[in-house]
Computed example of a mutant assay.
Amino acid sequence: MMRMNLVLLLGVVLSALYLVNVQYESRRLFSELDRARAQAHKLEVDHERLQVEKRAQATSARIEGLAKSRLQMRPANPAITAYVAYTPGATGPADAVAAANPVSMGRVK
């Protein structure tokens, strides 16, 4: 009878220790899950912010302003447009430019 009581006592103590360990592990995993959810929310907010910044950077007015200021570009108009015409005897790009603008290459039509 004494032996049976010791075995039962040992079983109760071991199951109590196991229960404490499982509860500790459960709390640890829950807090880790909470941290992961918070990080996922933060990443989602950052993604939304970056999407808004991307749309703001790609506006046509901003791109036009950068083209004017940094690249010194200007709108095309007929006064500054050079038209290139196809000539059957042209052998390369220089001949095509010369055919389109005879003064620049020293030729006159």
Rank of each mutant, 00 (worst) to 15 (best):
S31F: 07
V7T: 09
V7I: 13
G89A: 08
V45S: 01
V84Q: 06
Y18R: 07
K54D: 12
V52M: 09
R27M: 08
M2Y: 09
L71Q: 02
V13P: 08
S69L: 01
V84N: 02
V97C: 12
A61P: 00
E53V: 03
N77D: 08
N101R: 02
T81D: 04
V20S: 10
P93L: 07
K68Y: 05
L71M: 11
L17F: 11
Q72L: 11
L17M: 10
A61C: 05
H41A: 11
V12H: 10
E32Q: 09
E64A: 07
P75G: 10
I63A: 09
S69P: 03
E32I: 00
T81Y: 15
V97E: 03
S60R: 03
V97S: 04
D34K: 12
R70L: 08
V7C: 13
T59E: 13
A100C: 11
A90V: 00
T59R: 12
H47M: 05
V97N: 06
E44G: 11
L14G: 11
I63H: 05
G106Y: 08
R28Y: 05
A90L: 06
Q57E: 12
Y24Q: 07
A79N: 03
P88Y: 01
E44L: 09
G89K: 04
P75L: 10
R107H: 07
M105D: 10
T91L: 14
P75M: 04
R3K: 13
R35P: 02
Q39L: 12
L71E: 03
A40H: 02
L6E: 14
D34I: 01
P75I: 01
R49E: 04
L10M: 15
V103G: 09
L10P: 00
R107M: 09
E64H: 05
A40W: 01
E48L: 01
M105R: 04
K109D: 12
R74Q: 03
G65K: 00
V22M: 14
L19R: 07
G92S: 07
V13C: 15
A90R: 01
V13K: 13
L19Q: 06
L66Q: 04
L9C: 11
I80R: 10
D95L: 04
Y86E: 01
D34W: 08
Q51R: 14
K42V: 02
R55I: 01
N77E: 07
G92H: 07
K42E: 07
Y86K: 03
F30V: 02
V13Q: 09
A61E: 13
V22G: 02
V97I: 14
S104N: 00
S26M: 09
R74M: 05
G11F: 05
R107T: 01
R37L: 10
R37W: 14
L29D: 09
Y83K: 05
A90Q: 03
V108Y: 15
N101L: 14
R107D: 04
V84I: 13
A98P: 06
A38C: 10
E32W: 10
Q51E: 14
M1T: 13
A56H: 10
N21Y: 12
Q39W: 08
L14N: 03
P88Q: 02
A38K: 11
K42P: 01
M73I: 02
Y86L: 07
R35L: 11
R3E: 15
V7M: 14
M1C: 11
P78N: 06
Q23K: 10
A61T: 02
L10H: 09
E48D: 06
G89Y: 04
L19E: 09
D46W: 07
K68T: 04
